[in-house]
Computed example of a mutant assay.
Amino acid sequence: MFRSPILLAAFIVLAGCGASPAPQFFGAARHELRLEGIDFVVFVKGGRAEVIRMGYLRRSERDRVPALMIRAAEEASGCAVAGPAGGLYRSPSLPGDTGEARFQLDC
């Protein structure tokens, strides 16, 4: 009886460990890439891409990440990045966030 709630809690914690898309990207194609030693998960849907950086980076290692996020979106989608996604697909992150970004694609 006591083990059941513990197992359920452990399952919930482990389920949150992977990258999952924002609701706007549910049903998107998922791509996993490693660029310059950094892992990214890219969700591509309807001319837009959401890029999530995986793993931990020290502050001094983050300067190159925004350019790598653009590259990851382009490699995963086969399209050029036209700029940040707007409207409903706009990123809720603060400018300069190196953990998540959303882009409008030019295909």
Rank of each mutant, 00 (worst) to 15 (best):
M1N: 12
M1Q: 11
F2L: 14
F2P: 15
F2T: 07
R3Q: 10
S4W: 06
S4N: 09
P5L: 10
P5R: 13
P5I: 07
I6V: 12
L7E: 07
L7I: 12
I12N: 10
L14P: 00
L14Q: 07
L14I: 13
A19P: 05
A19Y: 08
P21W: 03
A22Y: 11
A22M: 12
A22Q: 12
P23W: 00
F25A: 01
F25E: 04
F26M: 14
F26S: 15
F26P: 09
A28W: 07
A28Q: 05
A28N: 03
A28E: 05
A29K: 15
R30T: 09
E32D: 15
L33K: 14
L33Q: 14
L33P: 15
R34S: 14
L35A: 05
L35D: 01
E36K: 14
E36I: 06
G37S: 09
G37I: 06
I38D: 02
D39M: 05
F40E: 04
V41I: 12
V41H: 08
V42I: 13
V42Q: 05
V42M: 07
F43N: 01
K45V: 01
K45H: 14
G46N: 15
G46S: 14
G46V: 02
G47N: 08
R48F: 01
R48E: 00
E50C: 09
I52E: 11
R53A: 04
R53E: 06
G55P: 03
Y56C: 10
Y56N: 12
Y56F: 15
L57I: 04
L57T: 01
L57M: 05
R58T: 00
R58D: 15
R59D: 13
S60C: 04
S60K: 14
E61W: 03
E61D: 13
E61M: 09
D63C: 02
D63W: 08
R64M: 10
P66S: 07
A67K: 11
L68A: 03
R71H: 09
E74I: 01
E75L: 13
E75D: 11
A76G: 04
A76H: 10
A76I: 12
S77E: 06
G78V: 09
G78D: 01
G78N: 09
C79M: 05
A80S: 10
A80H: 07
V81G: 02
V81T: 02
A82H: 02
A82G: 09
G83E: 08
G83M: 02
A85I: 04
A85M: 08
G86V: 07
Y89L: 02
Y89M: 06
Y89V: 00
Y89N: 14
R90C: 06
S91I: 00
S93Q: 13
S93I: 04
S93D: 15
S93R: 09
L94Q: 11
L94Y: 02
P95E: 14
P95G: 10
P95S: 11
G96E: 03
D97N: 15
T98L: 00
T98M: 01
T98F: 03
E100W: 08
R102D: 06
R102K: 00
R102P: 11
R102Q: 03
F103C: 06
Q104R: 00
D106V: 00
C107P: 05
C107Y: 08
